[in-house]
């Protein structure tokens, strides 16, 4: 059997073998480069130290996710296992060049947000502390933004129940609204706000009558008060008189004050005089005794002498 010729109407490209070899070389090179790049990206060629993080819950943590420090990835999750104590153990590989950012006082957090995946972060406040030794084990603190959702839902449910109670036809709010509607109806009636407040039209009429009487009374009072020679004018005149009286009283008080000053001076002089009165009295007593003695002497002399001898029977 003879071999039929191949059916191909296209011409053979120039240097087909060279081009094909070049293409295959490029493809193989790209594939090898891709595999090497992926291995590099996975950290196969990098020396790293292990770090174990113990978490209560490792939900959302996947192998390959980064550990970030100050916004830069300094490590990757290599493994996530469940320990014998029921806690998740997240094994990280920290490249040697980035291990200096982790200190013995470093704090590790696992943050969950409402949107997006979880994030592992490291915080090193004291960079002077010793470096974290290889194979260390640290507890990771979990910050879960979704943890409050159940409580929020419970609160929302309570709010919804309250709203349902409020919107119930027999609820207090509805009753109040009905009453308010009645009051509004009365307010729009002929008695206006008074009718709404007092309830009965008769009471509103009484209040209106009272207001009229009050108006009349006020007019009369105004007439008495502010008419010419009214109570206001009289009071004003009285006040003027009172002011005059007060001025007079002020003058009188000044006079009294001067009198008191004089009295004070007099009393001081009297006090001095009373001090000399004792001396004067002693002198008077002495003079009187001398005068008495002189009289006695005179009586003993003639013609005033008399027999002073008593003769007993």
């Amino acid at each position: 059997m003879s071999e039929p010729p191949l059916i191909d109407d296209r011409a053979t490209p120039a240097h087909a073998e060279v081009k094909a070899t070049l293409l295959i070389t490029v493809v193989v090179t790209l594939l090898i480069a891709f595999v090497v790049y992926v291995m590099f990206a996975r950290g196969v060629f990098e020396r790293s130290r292990a770090l174990d993080l113990v978490a209560e819950n490792a939900e959302g943590v996947v192998v390959g996710m980064p550990l970030s420090f100050a916004g830069f990835a300094i490590g990757q999750v290599r493994d996530v296992t469940l320990g014998d104590d029921g806690k998740a153990r997240i094994r990280l590989a920290i490249p040697e060049k980035d291990a200096r950012w982790l200190r013995t006082s470093s704090v590790f957090t696992l943050e969950r947000s409402l949107v997006g995946g979880v994030r592992l972060r490291a915080y090193s406040g004291l960079l002077d502390d010793p470096q974290l030794p290889p194979g260390s084990e640290r507890t990771v603190h979990i910050g879960d933004a979704t943890a409050d959702i159940p409580m929020l839902l419970a609160t929302l449910r309570t709010v919804a129940e309250n709203i349902e109670q409020l919107s119930n036809p027999s609820s207090a709010l509805n009753t109040s609204l009905k009453d308010l509607k009645v009051v509004a109806g009365r307010m729009s009636g002929p008695q206006g706000v008074l009718g709404a407040v007092l309830g009965e039209p008769a009471n509103a009429a009484k209040v209106l009558t009272l207001i009229d009487q009050s108006n009349r009374l006020l007019a009369q009072a105004e007439q008495r008060l502010f008419a010419p020679e009214g109570l206001a004018d009289q009071t004003q005149a009285s006040v003027a008189d009172l002011r005059t009286l007060l001025a007079s009283a002020r003058n009188s008080l000044s006079t009294v004050e001067a009198l008191l000053a004089d009295a004070k001076a007099v009393s001081s002089e009297v006090r001095v005089a009373s001090a000399d009165l004792g001396t004067l009295r002693a002198e008077v007593d002495l003079s009187l005794r001398k005068l008495s003695h002189l009289i006695d002497e005179i009586n003993r002399k003639w013609p005033f002498a008399r027999d002073t001898t008593l003769t007993l029977p």
Binding site: R10, P13, A16, E17, K19, A20, L23, I24
Partner: peptide, 17 residues
């Protein structure tokens, strides 16, 4: 066969590349 394969690779891969 290698020559034909090279030709076909040029036609199949290089042209639409």
């Amino acid at each position: 066969c290698r020559r034909e394969a090279a030709r076909q690779i040029c036609l199949a891969a290089l042209r639409p590349l």
